[in-house]
């Protein structure tokens, strides 16, 4: 049985809501005015997108709850947890900085560490910039709410409104869960927080599933593109076999490069060098 629901897939916006160019835009603008577009979005896409995002939001709740509990144990107030979750909004960064604040680490050290840990967002922000709203405030807000899970749910076809909605849902879930974590902290037995429990695993599982899914979708589209290109340029080797095997080799090489970078630089500082090397390697092979 092939149970392919929309939940497992990155969220695409229907053709009617996608950004288009040239004469298509003129046609689109002529057909649907702004108020009609907004009404259509709220009637159709809002609930559908929300339902698609909820499973992922559910997976980040335990992680954020845990942060709230740990922050409460470090004598952080609800206001402080609310502010760091909303203004900071970075899972790994928040967890990394929490113990450092207890040891009295300076602002510059905290900033350098946080930037190093979250450097992957540089690449992700660049890639996802085209699907953000045009208005500067909305654009800045959407950019700030960018998270790993949101990025894994979006595609190039996701409209600006849907992107904002996906990010907002995950952002609000993260903040609320952290605040609830502070309130729940006195009632949670200490053995529940032990290392062996690993409450962050469901979030890792969700992100891993979405990453593999995105890789599959993206590499499949690249197979098709290279196959189409090969059909125009006749070769001795069967084109589909050649491009598929080349892409598989590139994927394995990318995984190996990433693994070596983690080994050499550590899991906190490998992001930018690894992304740069893997992408340059893929670019050279593609050229």
């Amino acid at each position: 049985m092939k149970n392919q629901t929309a939940v497992s897939q990155p969220i695409n916006t229907p053709i009617s809501e996608q950004k288009s160019t040239g004469h298509q835009d003129k046609k689109y603008i002529a057909i649907a005015s702004q108020p009609v577009q907004k009404t259509l979005f709220w009637k159709t896409r809002f609930w559908k997108t929300s339902l698609q995002v909820l499973p992922t939001a559910g997976a980040i709740i335990p992680v954020s709850l845990l942060f709230g509990v740990l922050a409460s144990q470090a004598d952080w107030s609800v206001t402080e947890v609310f502010l760091i979750s909303s203004l900071g909004f970075t899972g790994s960064g928040q967890f990394a900085l929490l113990p450092l604040t207890e040891s009295g680490t300076g602002l510059l050290t905290l900033l350098l560490l946080a930037v190093s840990i979250n450097s992957r967002y540089l690449a992700i922000a660049l890639v996802s910039a085209s699907r953000l709203p045009g208005a500067p405030v909305k654009k800045a807000l959407a950019a700030h709410m960018l998270g790993d899970e949101a990025y894994a749910l979006e595609t190039e076809q996701t409209s600006a409104t849907t992107t904002l909605l996906i990010r907002s849902i995950l952002f609000i879930c993260w903040i609320l869960s952290a605040v609830i974590g502070v309130w729940l902290a006195p009632y949670i037995p200490s053995e529940w927080l032990a290392e062996e429990i690993n409450p962050g695993y469901p979030a890792s599982a969700v992100l891993f599933f979405l990453s593999v899914n995105q890789l599959k979708v993206r590499l499949q589209s690249q197979f098709k593109m290279s196959d189409a290109h090969d059909e125009r340029t006749p070769r001795k080797v069967k084109p589909s076999e050649q491009s598929s095997s080349c892409n598989l080799i590139r994927l394995i090489a990318g995984i190996l490069i990433s693994g070596v970078c983690i080994l050499v630089l550590g899991s906190e500082y490998f992001w930018l060098p690894a992304i740069a090397i893997v992408s340059v390697f893929r670019l050279r092979r593609t050229a």
């Binding site: 107030s77 206001t79 402080e80 502010l83 900071g88 905290l110 930037v115 922000a125 654009k139 950019a143």
Partner: peptide
């Protein structure tokens, strides 16, 4: 609010501006 919490909040907010907000506006430019 204690000082250490304030420093962490400022550090993470600046981080978000550097790694998430700034690149988006640079791409736009």
């Amino acid at each position: 609010m204690n000082d250490s919490a304030t420093q962490a909040i400022i550090a993470l907010f600046l981080t978000s501006l550097i790694v998430r907000v700034l690149p988006v506006f640079l791409v736009h430019l």
